[in-house]
Amino acid sequence: MLNLIKRDLLLSFYSSANFFFTVSFFVLILILIPFAFGTQSDQLTNLFKGVVWIALALSIIITVDRIYNADYEDGNLDIIMQKNKTIEYLVISKYVTHWFIYCLPLLVILPILSFLFYLDYLETIQIFINLFIGSFGMVFIANFVSALTLGAKRTIFLKAIIMIPLFVPFIIFGSDAGSWPILLGLSMLSFVISIYVTAYGLRLYGE
């Protein structure tokens, strides 16, 4: 499992543009808020709290093609699955690497962004906690959608249609500051479902 995590992280480090692209995408969506709604500071703060979740959801949706597809197309997935009798290890290592590569940079950049939108320290911490917990749940969902749709190529819109209804509860509870326990519960539930469904999908395609 550690080997798999190391391999995926190394692969992403070699093309370090990955980090740069996801962070840029996230920042650019949030920069659109003042362009669209004007620069009144109290309004900006309110909008930021909601739109940050939409930005997170979109940046996870556009990465869904990168989780298993490369390994599936060049045959690495079959080799890994033959070596590891329990696919669940592979799945968990993918969760970790996907979160590290695509969600951690966003969380790192978040405090800087929140100062641009006039949030105070307390609000920043609350949003950070919610995003931290919620991003795990969203990563679990993205993983199983990626595993299920390996056979459907070039269907990023279809994947978005599948994923957005599943993201709705996260966005509802995430944009409210005090509801992180519910968010934690949702993330745990999605972990339980996701690990089972991802392994099921990979077994189907691996055969």
């Binding site: 299920l148 056979g151 099921y200 999908g201």
Partner: peptide
Amino acid sequence: AYIFLWQAISNKELASKISAAL
């Protein structure tokens, strides 16, 4: 999502299983 996922996957036996899971 159920209807169009079935249409998007070219291997129909797989497509049925996947869309059922969805």
